[in-house]
Design a binder for these strands. Sequence first.
DNA 1: CCACGATGTATCGGACCGATACATCGCACC
DNA 2: GGTGCGATGTATCGGTCCGATACATCGTGG
Lengths: 212, 212
Amino acid sequence: MLELAILGLLQEAPMHGYELRKELTAKLGAIRAAISYGSLYPTLRRLQAAGWITEADETPATAEEVPALTSRRGRVVYTITAEGKERFAQLIAQTGPETYGDTGFGVHFAFFSRTDRATRLRILEGRRRTIEERREGLRDMLGRAAERLDAYTLELQRHGLEACEREVRWLEELIANERSGRAPTVPVDGTAGGPRQDKSPPPPGETRTERP
Amino acid sequence: MLELAILGLLQEAPMHGYELRKELTAKLGAIRAAISYGSLYPTLRRLQAAGWITEADETPATAEEVPALTSRRGRVVYTITAEGKERFAQLIAQTGPETYGDTGFGVHFAFFSRTDRATRLRILEGRRRTIEERREGLRDMLGRAAERLDAYTLELQRHGLEACEREVRWLEELIANERSGRAPTVPVDGTAGGPRQDKSPPPPGETRTERP
DNA sequence: CCACGATGTATCGGACCGATACATCGCACC
DNA sequence: GGTGCGATGTATCGGTCCGATACATCGTGG
């Protein structure tokens, strides 16, 4: 999952570790709290060893002397390679059971603007099915096995059930929206890439913004 | 977290691994999908080594002969010890940052009927604060940094923000209930849940219930 | 003058997951 | 009468990710 997210972010611009973590946290803030360096740095090393990214020490080109008295450690900037882009495309398109879990779905969804519509639909429907199953499990629990559980556990289940129902409704809307054809079909490519091409796909969600 | 959950469940009745996993999945179904054996068995071994639980091979006491031709492996039944109960009480009462994360909070909440009210309130308020901070982060993101993110990511944030707002409201209700000395009451919703008999909640006093 | 928070890179132990292996039992289906 | 299949049951292994920790630089304000 981290691998996918890193590759996706580096496709927008080269970054160093600290920045990467901030962007990661911003993009995935709705699902995960914060990515640990204990995950980030080893993963970066793994990606570099595999050839998906390159690591470049940021030494100031304007350094005249600076006789390295303090052996200044520059920031390490990571850049995605062509193979890395290929790898990302492969990862983003392949769906499995882990794609429909909470974290997996969130990461995939966060990169939907780089995903073709067929895959988007497949993921949304798979996620819906997963949540529907969880919902049924909770319903059964609250129906049949209710007397075996205490009031607090029941309240937890009830709250979880409600969350499931809301998410299914949300997914229905997104699916309908994708099907209605107003979906982006974003040109995924990047060879023309400067950093940050301004892509703004059509609003995937509902038109209502009922937040005060 | 697993340690706490196992200790809590074994306090209700001795169980073997398979059963433990089922009960764990039932009790925590709203937060986690299913506990892996790859976590469960090592943890059981760790708890046994620490003396919190005892491990007893379930050999049928009525076995006259049966000279072990097939070397039948009996089920291993785990029972909590007095030290284990002490350990559980210690774990359930101590709160830290990890208590307010998604998983930690869920596990603690699932055992609220074995938690004294002061601790319950501390946990609910800590959780509320955590979610409020997450909510503020998402609000900032949707306000200030909105133009840097694509439509799908924004939609994800919006959905996450809504979930935060709902959870805060839920927590407010629970906190108010705790303060008023009642058990979790059931909000009138209609969409969520099936039959909801008001099963007599843990009395406002202390907890301590053994299963028959 | 220096304390403090932000920036920045990095490692280590541990918790947990997913896949896998293997064995028994009862029951439906042919 | 056989046979396959799903539930029950115990267990390990490799890998991912987290939390704590360490250390260094820089700007700002008291």
